[in-house]
Write a protein that binds this DNA or RNA. Structure first.
Lengths: 243, 243
DNA sequence: CACGCATATTGATCTAAAGCAGTATCACGT
DNA sequence: ACGTGATACTGCTTTAGATCAATATGCGTG
């Protein structure tokens, strides 16, 4: 795949116009490829990380396990997302990141990342913007768990995933391929899998959205946005340019 | 108040041993004092911020409002916390920060902050560690909303606030002063105020914790930690030193 | 093919928390 | 001294979502 078609490049380009040299540096970062099998951990909770992964293919999820055995998925990762950035910049990982499907990543050592940032500030800004967007999504997720009903919350999640995939050219207003099981959704939405099933049925019967055989289909996009209170703006705000 | 007694200094010192010059720079940052009345906004959602505030006295909270009028409090701020850091580094604020009580802050322009970071890297690291800790707390909060019961969640919040206050010398294992109303708690915990009241009664009757006239008293700290699944470690992990 | 395992689906019951309604207390401002 | 508004507390009813139990459906593997 030519570098200007990689998911990360597409994603960053939406936000900052990358120069040829930015793209060249980005290509450098994509050299070391690795693959993970579905269900395996990319980052272990409590471990210090010396590298980040750029997700090229497949889906991941970051989650925390509770003493009682249940788990809460904090966020999903789709192609173009950077995994483990925080744990490199700051500290040991406080949650684990797992491959939902078979996954292909580019591994970037933290030293490479730092020098890339120094040489191409525009790239650094774009990546930080991405990290900031991810945080905003975590906050939005928190708000949903606290104050939205199961149906609203589910609708919101599907819309958000759709918006993220659209950025990397893997989704439209019609729908997108989604490899998640109802258990994944349950763990993200703070519901039981049984109830997720009922919620999906309701969305289907209300002709808003259908999720079948790995495909999410938006049946009435606007009504869905309205139901979820989905803010289309919040995913693409502008970063302040560092001096 | 001498600078080495300021809440922020205490907090950062827990994590990095600050040198005299670090402390001198910190003192510089505390020059421009401002006060806000309870209920007023320090940061408005959607506005770009040119300054951060170091909270010296009083409590704040950051929250998001929903279309239906309800709100979700994302985090509380106590003395020593830095407000609006993210919106200076990255982008416009995506939520508003409100003074819970009358509040005193030091205002720091982003240019001052940047030059302070350049001149005293150790200080930069300490502040970033604080920001990273705050994020970890947001994630923990999200997990609570998704997977913990009302009682567990409430216990967890009280413990977390206690731990944060202890760092700045404003709380012990016996308890701490807490200016929050049951409405604040409800908006943070994703409950109704009525139900918060019942939860508080249950905690009191089970002789775990009492909250009365602005004072949180731990009646059985260990049992509370156990009930909440509170991880005492997660607030004080170590940052990786930047090269 | 048959078997086991993961995933999806539906029905019946149970429960935690919401919603609604009302009372109590206290701090103010006049 | 008297309202008025914010906060705290309690009882009763309702509901969203959990829990328990069962039945599909498909898919890889011996």
């Amino acid at each position: 795949m030519p570098i200007h078609d990689s998911p990360l490049t597409k994603k960053l380009n939406v936000f900052v116009q990358l120069s040829d040299s930015d793209i060249a540096v980005l290509a450098e970062l994509h050299r070391r490829r690795r693959a993970f099998k579905a269900g395996h951990d990319l980052v272990h909770q409590g471990e210090a990380n010396k590298s980040v992964y750029i997700l090229a293919k497949g889906w991941g999820c970051s989650s925390k396990l509770l003493p009682d055995g249940s788990r809460q998925i904090v966020d999903f990762q789709v192609p173009g997302d950077i995994l483990g950035l925080r744990s490199v910049l700051f500290r040991t990982a406080d949650h684990s990141i797992e491959a939902v499907t078979d996954v292909e990543v580019s591994e970037v050592m933290d030293s490479e990342l730092r020098s890339a940032f120094v040489n191409t500030p525009r790239l650094a800004i774009a990546v930080l913007w991405g990290a900031s967007r991810d945080e905003a999504m975590v906050v939005e997720h928190l708000v949903g768990l606290g104050r939205r009903s199961a149906v609203e919350r589910s609708a919101h999640l599907f819309l958000e995933l759709g918006a993220r995939l659209a950025v990397v050219g893997m989704g439209t207003k019609d729908g997108y391929d989604c490899p998640l099981t109802q258990y994944h959704l349950a763990d993200a939405l703070g519901l039981t899998a049984v109830h997720v099933n009922r919620v999906l049925r309701e969305l289907r019967e209300r002709k808003l959205l259908s999720f079948n055989k790995g495909y999410v289909e938006f049946l009435d996009f606007d009504a869905l946005v309205n139901l979820a209170g989905f803010d289309t703006e919040y995913l693409d705000q502008h970063v302040r340019l560092l001096p």
